[in-house]
């Protein structure tokens, strides 16, 4: 079993009379975890508590086995952080900034210099490392922040919207880099984002926050697997096939050129009986079949369903 790098139990945080986090109870396992939520959901506030920037109002929180409120410096020495903003001091060279951050995290001068250089090569800025940050593009600055977050070889990095301001090609490159950090470098990653697609692409786990509450968390593949049913894509004859399937007691929705078929569970039956049955009906109807397979669920579906459920529970 993988141990949790972050474990939160009924964490609350308010600023004045505004309750930003009302109940955060979740474990972040080792690996790459996406922290997902719309803007204002409480993601950045939660990261602030993880880093020990702010004291929480209630609940328990451990990061790498310690409470950030009482052991902040010890925890942060083992963590890397890439903030959401990408201003950075314009007249400082990338290598100097990364070296400085490595030193602050406890590395001696020479090791800091060497690892800063290595980290900048790893993020693709080896040739650019002596350039002042003010002359760099947004994509390059995001890479500098990532290099600064990993140069001291942390156990955990928090990346807050690391693809913000990047064009599609730069975004792909950044996601690939983060994937390498989490899988090849052995560093656990918490990727805070409001972009479902990028979380779905590189994360093993996801934690979805809405209005200061964790509304869903778990392994992404398992979440997708929650749904049963079959999807069949046809060239024509949708109504005929759908009507025939409904006569057999199946629930069928027509979505464009696809039929979404929900099959009731049949204990003891071949798990693929429904596939065979649909194939036979389509053959009988003599229409062309393009695709037949399990219904897949996207993270977007999970996110929207979870949000709807949370809204219903809240009586909204």
């Amino acid at each position: 079993m993988r141990t949790a790098v972050i474990s939160a139990n009924r964490v609350t945080k308010s600023f004045g009379t505004t309750n930003v986090l009302t109940d955060i109870s979740v474990d972040f396992p080792a690996g790459i975890t996406g922290l997902l939520g719309s803007n204002g959901a409480g993601k950045t506030t939660f990261l602030s508590l993880v880093l020990g920037f702010e004291p929480r109002n209630g609940g328990g929180l451990t990061v790498l086995g310690h409470d950030p409120q009482t052991a902040g410096p010890e925890i942060r020495a083992q963590m890397g952080y890439s903030p959401e903003h990408h201003h950075l001091p314009s007249d400082v060279q990338a290598a100097d900034l990364v070296r400085h951050m490595a030193q602050l995290h406890g590395l001696p001068q020479q090791a800091s210099t060497e690892r800063a250089s290595d980290a900048l090569w790893l993020v693709g800025l080896g040739e650019e490392r002596f350039r002042p940050i003010g002359t760099m593009s947004t994509g390059q600055r995001q890479r500098v922040k990532l290099a600064a977050a990993i140069a001291h070889d942390p156990a955990l990095v928090l990346l807050d919207e690391p693809t913000d301001g990047l064009d599609p090609v730069q975004r792909d490159d950044m996601l690939e880099l983060i994937h390498r950090v989490g899988n090849e470098y052995g560093i656990s990653v918490v990727l805070s984002s409001h972009l479902l697609e990028e979380v779905e692409r590189i994360c093993d786990h996801v934690v979805i926050i809405s209005n200061g509450v964790v509304i869903r968390s778990g392994n992404i593949d398992e979440m997708r697997g929650d749904r049963t049913g079959v999807m069949v894509e046809l060239d024509g004859g949708h109504e005929l096939v759908a009507a025939t399937l409904r006569q057999a007691g199946l629930v069928v929705d027509i979505v464009g050129s696809r039929l979404m078929v929900d099959a009731p569970p049949q204990p003891g039956a071949d798990p693929y009986w429904i596939h065979d049955y649909i194939r036979d009906v389509v053959a009988w109807a003599q229409v062309g079949m393009r695709r037949l397979g399990d219904q897949t669920i996207s993270l977007e579906d999970v996110f929207l369903e979870s949000n709807d459920a949370a809204s219903s529970d809240a009586g909204l």
Binding site: Y81, H86, H87, L88, L104
Partner: peptide
């Protein structure tokens, strides 16, 4: 404070 370095410093062992 204007360059955002404060957040990065406070994410180090410094408080």
């Amino acid at each position: 404070r204007t360059s955002g370095m404060l957040a990065m410093y406070l994410a180090s062992p410094l408080n």
